[in-house]
């Protein structure tokens, strides 16, 4: 029953997100602002995956690979590894292009096939990328193997570095808060682009493909092209997020791009509600903070049982798995579903 996009309560939400890092720093400390920054990158990733899974209905289990491609693109173009130091405005578009081409290259062979093949091929692809990242050290050392790439240039625009504190009109701006605003800008842009698409001719076509691919093709929709577009766009968002991640963290290694991470992003999208941006953002934030919430568990166990019975990171992954299963069983539309998607899950 979508006629036109529902209106955002724009000014209030924007104001809230603008003062959020200050509030968090005041209440919880600077460490949590860093976590918040990483959470925004997760949100960006989830928005990208939502295009693929939520809009076009294609299950991608190797999405983290695009994040990895973007991260390595940044790392190689702005570190001593090759001695090149490109500026951010040149790296990000390159990363987008590379990630999107990977998306197309991966999607292309599987598009004519059933969706479940796509799932397993993407899953394999995610692992293969990791094999390459781990091994592309000969004949030329490209990725530096399992050690990864270090001393990556910090995020900066011209002379403005996001790794350093600044002073704006006399107000001190901590580096992490500055980074927060940069990431927020990207998230807002991604939300805007995603939303415009959702309510366009293309979004409508994706929805039709999701509901009945044969009927969609019979109405003149080039389903292969549309699915590839979803793939490429999702990958591009993943690539941007990866680039920002590399610049923010300062080093990358293959271990950041495992299947578990792919499942986590999928979990973010499913938890909030596939196809619904508000839900996806909420799901991503919730799960990005989960490890921090679980972290004290280790200490408590140590205190009460004198040893750690359940490792918090195992528990976190276990929870992801349980979440996916429980949601699919009882609330497949997620916590904050789009109306159309809720109908879909409950009538079929």
């Amino acid at each position: 029953m979508i006629a036109c996009p529902p209106r955002f309560k724009f000014p209030w939400m924007l104001l809230g997100t603008l003062i959020l890092p200050w509030v968090i720093e005041g209440l919880l400390g600077r460490g949590w602002v860093r976590i918040l920054d990483f959470a925004l990158l997760s949100v960006l990733l989830a928005i990208g995956l939502n295009i693929v899974v939520g809009y076009a209905g294609l299950l991608d289990l190797g999405f983290i690979a695009f994040f990895g491609v973007g991260a390595y693109a940044y790392a190689l173009l702005a570190s001593p590894q090759f001695g090149v130091h490109w500026p951010l405005w040149a790296i990000l578009p390159t990363g987008i292009l590379v990630a999107a081409s990977f998306g197309v290259a991966l999607g292309w062979p599987t598009l004519g096939l059933r969706g479940d093949y796509l799932a397993i091929v993407t899953m394999g692809f995610g692992e293969i990328i990791r094999v390459f990242l781990n091994n592309l050290t000969a004949p030329i050392n490209i990725t530096n193997g399992p050690q990864g790439i270090t001393m990556i240039d910090a995020l900066h625009l011209g002379t403005w570095s996001f790794a350093r504190p600044h002073r704006l009109w006399g107000i001190p701006l901590p580096a992490l808060v500055g980074t927060y605003y940069l990431f927020l800008l990207f998230v807002l842009l991604a939300l805007f682009l995603s939303r415009r698409l959702e309510y366009s001719r293309i979004g409508r076509a994706w929805m039709a493909i999701r509901e009945d691919e044969i009927a969609a093709a019979s109405m003149g929709l080039d389903t292969r092209r549309l699915k590839l577009l979803a793939y490429a766009l999702g990958a591009a968002f993943g690539g941007v997020s990866g680039g920002l991640f590399a610049g923010f963290q300062g080093f990358v290694s293959p271990e950041s791009f495992t299947l578990q991470e792919s499942v986590m992003i999928l979990c973010m999208v499913v938890l909030g509600g596939m196809g619904n941006l508000r839900g996806v953002v909420a799901g991503a934030l919730l799960l990005a903070f989960l490890p921090e919430v679980l972290r004290p568990l280790g200490g408590w166990q140590q205190h009460w049982f004198h040893r750690v019975l359940i490792d918090p990171s195992t528990l976190r992954l276990l929870l992801f798995g349980v979440t996916l299963v429980v949601l699919m069983r009882w609330r497949p539309e997620g916590l904050l579903p789009s109306r159309a998607r809720a109908r879909e899950w409950h009538t079929s």
């Binding site: 299950l59 969706g115 992954l317 276990l318 798995g321 299963v325 497949p332």
Partner: peptide, 19 residues
């Protein structure tokens, strides 16, 4: 259920068994 649901459940169960 729609096709996506058992696939997502399957990946979730795989996670549960591993962890």
């Amino acid at each position: 259920a729609p096709k996506l649901a058992p696939l997502i459940t399957a990946i979730g169960m795989s996670m549960v068994l591993e962890q």
